[in-house]
Amino acid sequence: MTQTELNLLFKKCYKSNIPQLIHLTESKEAAQEVYQEAFYVFLKKWKQGAIQNQQNLCGYIFRVAKNKWLENKRKSKEISWDSILMPNETLTDDFDQLEVAENVLEQKKRAQLILAAMKELGDNCRKLLMETIVYKVSLKKLQEELGYASYNAVKVAKHQCKKSLIRKYWKLEGEKIE
């Protein structure tokens, strides 16, 4: 499937799924959110080669969206139980709040450095890492798709790319500290 075909599918299934999802979630925004979550799941499964001979892709995406919505609903209930069990005082302490804020800032900086390091990699490395880390495409499938001579060759290539990413990250982190 090309990018254009994927866009077409996104639009086609949006048209058929969104009225039912609005009915289910009782909000257009929530319906759009859950639809996008479901399409992301579909995209991952499709890249992994897990979706084959699926007759009704829009139906599949709808089922995923419905499950996602149920899952979110369950989670939001869990969160409310959480807040009941954990009294508010635990975070009202200034020191705790400061620590949480510092951690968030630290994580944000780290994320920016990882993305900057990723940008410095070559196209092939970026693709290999995105396919394996984000989309969880198997090395066996990538070996065939990207034309590596053996399973071991693609495994080594992935490892080298990750090594290069980590080194670039360290270098950028070092430059920041300096």
Binding site: Q32, Y40, L43, A111, L115, L129, M130, Y169
Partner: peptide, 27 residues
């Protein structure tokens, strides 16, 4: 390693959602 996975996942998702927002407007 776990942070790399988390950051790449989130950034890819954000980028896709930006493109999808455009498609949603069109549709």
């Amino acid at each position: 390693h776990q942070d790399i996975e988390g950051v790449l996942n989130t950034s890819e998702k954000q980028e896709l959602k930006q493109n999808w927002a455009e498609l949603i407007l069109e549709v």
